[in-house]
Design a binder for these strands. Structure first.
Length: 220
DNA sequence: GAGGAGATCGTCT
DNA sequence: GACGATCTCCTCT
């Protein structure tokens, strides 16, 4: 198996979070910009019946709520976006472009709209299951490139973790009982870069995309 | 490797 | 009926 793939497997072995304590709700009850920055380096965990999926958060975007024209919450509360207006720390999952799901977490205190979009993850454990979910083989000559394709992009990471609106919308990421949550394993990114958000037309100039500089799994 | 176009369907107006 | 917080495939360089 190619070098990058081996590296990721080693990382996965060494860094799989041992203390699976979800980050508390207070963490999310803040400005999405602060939450975005602090989410980098944390670990998203999906508890499966027999296996644990985990991946480090390496790229996110902040959406500021009703004052942010690019945010789904800009036009007010709807049947689709109601989670953004509720308590912090809940998942907001929506379907887009006819074939992709995007995965967000609600921020700011209950009643204020805001969220963070997860754009890219670095796989840590359960890599084979993620590859299965994405219908990607990691055995070929292009294993390096294919490993990146597992979770580098909002639609890709959602597919790798089996995240859908039907299954995961409005799920509590701060609950021990949840099968989807985020933990802090002590990792701290050395250098965080901030750029304008990707793929939007409104308010596209604001620097609200945060990623770990130099990380191979960042989407662009 | 980079860039462009098509696919596809839920949500909102 | 139009649009969209994307991805993949195909073509061109």
């Amino acid at each position: 198996m190619a070098l990058l793939c081996r590296e990721a497997m080693t990382i996965a072995k060494n860094r799989t979070p041992s203390a699976l304590v979800p980050i508390p709700r207070d963490f999310y009850a803040r400005d999405p910009r602060a939450v975005s920055r602090d989410l980098l380096g944390k670990v998203l965990v999906r508890r499966q019946p027999r296996k644990l999926l985990s991946a480090r958060i390496v790229e996110v975007e902040a959406y500021l709520g009703q004052d942010d024209p690019a945010a789904h919450s800009a036009s007010g509360r709807t049947a689709r976006n109601f989670v953004l207006f509720g308590p912090p720390g809940l998942t907001y999952v929506y379907f887009i472009y006819g074939n992709h799901y995007c995965f967000n977490v609600s921020c700011l205190p209950d009643g204020e709209a805001g969220g963070v979009l997860f754009r890219a993850l670095e796989p840590m454990s359960g890599i084979e299951l993620m590859a299965q979910a994405r219908d990607i083989s990691l055995d070929g000559a292009a294993a390096d490139r294919d490993l990146r394709k597992l979770t580098s992009g909002p639609g890709r990471l959602a597919e790798a973790f089996g995240i859908t609106r039907e299954r995961d919308n409005e799920k509590d990421l701060t609950s021990r009982k949840s099968d989807l949550f985020i933990v802090d394993d002590g990792f701290r990114p050395q250098h965080i870069e901030v750029t304008p958000r990707i793929g939007i037309t409104k308010a596209a100039e604001h620097p609200l995309r945060y990623f770990i500089a130099g990380n191979k799994f960042v989407s662009r």
